[in-house]
Deep mutational scan, measured.
Amino acid sequence: GLPEGWEMRFTVDGIPYFVDHNRRTTTYIDPRTG
């Protein structure tokens, strides 16, 4: 799974992105792969 505090969501286009609730940021880069 994802690191603690992270969540995976999808855009309206079906593109996955990642929400970091710890820092309240979003990124398209998987936190597991950097």
Rank of each mutant, 00 (worst) to 15 (best):
29 I>A: 08
27 T>W: 07
31 P>E: 02
4 E>V: 13
19 V>W: 10
7 E>I: 09
15 I>H: 09
33 T>R: 07
3 P>A: 04
27 T>F: 07
4 E>Q: 13
26 T>S: 12
31 P>M: 02
1 G>L: 14
19 V>M: 09
5 G>D: 02
10 F>W: 14
24 R>E: 13
1 G>A: 15
14 G>I: 00
12 V>P: 13
15 I>P: 02
4 E>G: 09
16 P>F: 05
17 Y>H: 02
21 H>A: 08
3 P>E: 03
11 T>G: 10
15 I>W: 11
3 P>S: 04
17 Y>K: 02
29 I>F: 10
27 T>E: 03
23 R>L: 11
15 I>D: 07
19 V>K: 04
20 D>S: 08
23 R>M: 11
18 F>Y: 10
3 P>F: 04
8 M>V: 07
10 F>D: 00
3 P>G: 05
5 G>N: 08
32 R>E: 04
23 R>A: 14
19 V>S: 03
20 D>P: 04
32 R>Q: 02
14 G>H: 08
22 N>V: 15
8 M>N: 00
19 V>Y: 15
11 T>P: 01
15 I>S: 06
17 Y>N: 01
32 R>A: 05
32 R>K: 03
7 E>K: 06
19 V>A: 04
20 D>Q: 07
9 R>Q: 05
23 R>N: 15
8 M>H: 01
24 R>Q: 15
17 Y>V: 08
14 G>V: 00
22 N>F: 12
32 R>W: 07
4 E>A: 15
28 Y>S: 08
13 D>Y: 12
8 M>T: 03
21 H>Q: 09
26 T>Q: 13
30 D>W: 02
24 R>L: 10
5 G>R: 06
18 F>A: 01
17 Y>G: 00
16 P>M: 11
27 T>Q: 08
18 F>S: 00
28 Y>R: 08
8 M>W: 03
25 T>K: 14
30 D>M: 00
6 W>L: 02
21 H>I: 11
22 N>R: 09
16 P>V: 12
24 R>S: 12
26 T>D: 06
2 L>R: 02
25 T>G: 08
1 G>S: 14
33 T>S: 11
6 W>K: 00
4 E>K: 13
20 D>M: 05
9 R>G: 04
3 P>K: 04
28 Y>E: 07
10 F>R: 08
8 M>K: 05
28 Y>P: 07
21 H>K: 10
25 T>F: 15
29 I>G: 05
7 E>A: 08
31 P>K: 00
6 W>E: 00
29 I>Q: 12
33 T>D: 12
34 G>N: 13
22 N>G: 09
27 T>I: 08
11 T>V: 01
22 N>T: 11
7 E>S: 12
17 Y>E: 05
22 N>E: 11
16 P>S: 05
20 D>A: 05
17 Y>R: 00
2 L>W: 07
31 P>I: 02
10 F>V: 08
8 M>D: 00
5 G>F: 07
34 G>L: 15
32 R>G: 03
17 Y>D: 02
5 G>M: 06
26 T>R: 11
24 R>H: 15
26 T>P: 02
14 G>L: 06
20 D>I: 05
4 E>N: 12
6 W>M: 03
13 D>E: 13
17 Y>P: 00
20 D>V: 05
29 I>H: 10
16 P>H: 05
20 D>K: 06
19 V>I: 14
33 T>V: 12
3 P>D: 06
20 D>R: 06
30 D>L: 01
10 F>N: 03
